[in-house]
Design a protein around this nucleic acid. Structure first.
Length: 130
DNA sequence: ATTCTAACA
DNA sequence: TGTTAGGA
């Protein structure tokens, strides 16, 4: 259950492939890196190399943006996601780590509405979630 | 052919 | 965000 994560975190994809896989422009992909939403590695020639996890993160960022959440809001989401994860790591390091993770992600969705702009919020009056 | 940084009619 | 110049 460990070699799988290693493969997903192995950076090998050039930005051109990431563009096709995420439908994002190179400009957007580089900008999100500037915002520290993804931190791809670089090869000998200073070319960016992305991992499958980076792809997932990029797609997630795109979804949040589509839902009207701004850069600050997205950063806040990841900031809290990491904070709660660390908290569970210090105390009962192993025990209910799995169920706890579910609750953490659940709480995350509960707070999304507060991070959206008033405009976007009014567009989703029928779907509280998302 | 691809990607990189910097900059803006 | 788009686009473009000038390099690697």
């Amino acid at each position: 259950m460990k070699g799988k994560e290693l493969r997903r975190s192995r950076s090998v994809l050039p930005i051109g492939t990431v563009m096709k896989l995420t439908n994002l422009t190179a400009r957007q992909i580089r900008y999100y890196e500037e915002q520290e939403l993804v931190m791809p590695e670089r090869n000998e020639g200073n070319r960016r190399l992305y991992s499958l996890n980076d792809i997932d993160r990029l797609l997630e960022v795109k979804d949040y943006l589509d839902d009207g959440i701004n850069m600050a809001g997205i950063k806040e989401i990841y900031r809290e996601r990491q904070a709660k994860l660390e908290a569970k790591r210090s105390d009962e390091s192993k025990p209910l780590s799995d169920n706890e993770l579910r609750k953490i992600l659940q709480d995350e969705f509960m707070n999304l509405g507060g991070l959206q702009t008033p405009e976007q919020r009014s567009l989703h009056t029928h779907n509280p979630l998302i």
